[in-house]
Design a binder for these strands. Structure first.
Lengths: 194, 194, 194, 194
DNA sequence: TATGAATGAGGCTTCATTCAT
DNA sequence: GATGAATGAAGCCTCATTCAT
């Protein structure tokens, strides 16, 4: 306990440095020594908090993923209507991608790269359950298309990652209007047409 | 007479090996030596065909991207109606992602990673022009939503990458039915609702 | 407390090994790995003390050059007469070339090769100032020929390097008598004839 | 014969390229491929004319050394007086170092570096015999100091190399006046004082 | 004779990790 | 707990030389 207390700051600094550096250079181009440097810590100290580099990045992934889903579902509860619930969650996610850009970028890189090991990836997916439950409910109510969750996610949620990356590259600026347009497209793509 | 006979076969073998290995391990985790080995060539030989590792991956990217767009637009011509044209192109792209899975995976990793340098990325984007032209036409005709091409791409095309990666990870099998469902979602997300 | 303890011994061992190996094989024919080996150190350790191979040899040059001029001027002070001062310095230099043969050989190779970069070379030259001042005084007093310092150096000092190299090659043994003869030639070549 | 006739140009081009590149970069920093390139020849062709890199540089050394001594002694004959003969030879040498700067630089680097193998070095020295004979005669006549030829060479001839290198580095410009001053110093250093 | 392609050996350097304090 | 020093393993790349034509 005392041990953890004493060092939570260092652990956080390491996680933060990892995100920053991996975002800019990629996993294999960020040496442990630079992570240590940016966290104002000796390289050897990293190994007091994490087993090795893979473990550091896995743990970082899980932590950021949790922060992401916490944010996404914070204001949601399952008494809402399907459409209202979806809009709420979707906009929280969009919000996260805009405000917590570094965290979101990190997740995008992890999700498109053989960088995280399978167990950690699975661990990260668990937290999405509320959204899947919402979709389940929507399907039952005939509001959401009765198709695979993978398809729903691909069309409703994943495009935001693409837009965020495009923005990061400077090709494109994602403003409030875009967000609203994107929401309309997302909802159109998964709702049952009448 | 027989001067510039740098074998195109070797070059192709190198490109192929690069795709295979980068797909499985990521750019920085695939040593030149392994690429050489898989291409049945000495490591030094790579440098007869490419300037360095970055150049190898850049050129591979451009080549695969060209193959991708060539395939996408092969059967398309701009006398088609907007909807028919879009469906045609979309299905060709889906086809490519299914049949040329390795090539498509490679592009996905390149596009979500700081792995390709900017000039090569720009070079790769050029080839997409016919699709952008089609969308332009669709906007003029009031068929396609009058929103940024980035948004259109994010919702109409990019989800296929997500689905493909999910499939590669074994989480999900993308069959003909899925493809049809995905097309409906794609079209719904970009067409003007009536 | 015990922070910056990068052992000066290791640094010295590296410098010593560099001199030894470069003397025998030349700069480009001495691999870092052999330098490390001779200094009883891992190759990677060199990079804790020096930026790269060029830096290692530059720093070695500057250090040896300083040792050389320190020795040359140690017993000299500018209240001596020009002739006495010159003889003193000259003989110290001769002494150095005989006793510190390896160091002197190293300097000779550096000075006759595009091996050291310009800034380091300039740095090395600075230390020669007392000799130039002495010559200046000698010119004013009409004792030393009123010619360029480069000429004076070429005739008064540089021949010792040639003799040292000849000796190293085994063609010739430089003894006390030779030194005395050499001194006479050196002095004859720069003093004003009467 | 026909063989040699056909290729003497290529051989010469190779020798010339070797001199140029070794002068600017040093022996180990000049790849065979660059020598070939500068000589407008395939790398493989070099091996038709020389056994290997060491052989190429050895042969180049011997050839340049011969050109040097040929030039030095061209107008000399041993009926001249010692002083006149020495001045003649010395000035021819000085002339060579000024006019055939590249050749002279190459010799200087060879002579101060473990770059040429011993047999070739010996071969190069042979050609100096006329100068040694002149000195012998001078010693007999009591005009030249009765000291080792190495000392005589160190003081009479070698300083020119130093001056030439200083000039190449841009530190110093060697003009006609300097040459005359240098000759006086050279002669002063080896002649018997009266 | 001449060549461009090909390569194995080796050099410089980096880096994840461990060690001694 | 924390660290700076140290390192072995490995990666990228170059180059002298040979091979096939």
């Amino acid at each position: 306990m005392a041990k953890l207390q004493k060092s939570i700051d260092k652990r956080n600094a390491l996680i933060k440095a990892t995100i920053e550096l991996v975002n800019n250079n990629g996993f294999h181009a960020t040496p442990m020594s630079k992570i240590a440097q940016m966290a104002n810590v000796s390289p050897a100290t990293i190994y007091l908090y994490f087993e090795n580099k893979q473990d550091l990045v896995n743990k970082t992934y899980i932590e950021v993923k949790a922060k992401y889903t916490d944010y996404a579902f914070e204001t949601y509860n399952d008494t809402m209507s399907v459409e209202a619930g979806f809009e709420l969650i979707w906009k929280r996610i969009a919000d996260f991608k805009l405000k917590e850009c570094k965290n979101a970028m990190f997740l995008a890189q992890c999700d498109n790269t053989p960088m995280i090991d399978e167990p950690s990836r699975q661990e990260g997916i668990k937290h999405l359950q509320p959204l899947l439950d919402l979709w389940e409910r929507g399907k039952e109510e005939g509001i959401i298309k009765p198709i695979s969750d993978y398809l729903l996610y691909a069309y409703a949620i994943n495009p935001l990652s693409f837009l965020m990356i495009a923005q990061k590259r400077g090709a494109f600026k994602l403003d409030k209007t875009h967000i609203e347009e994107a929401y309309q497209s997302a909802w159109s793509s998964i709702k049952v047409c009448n």
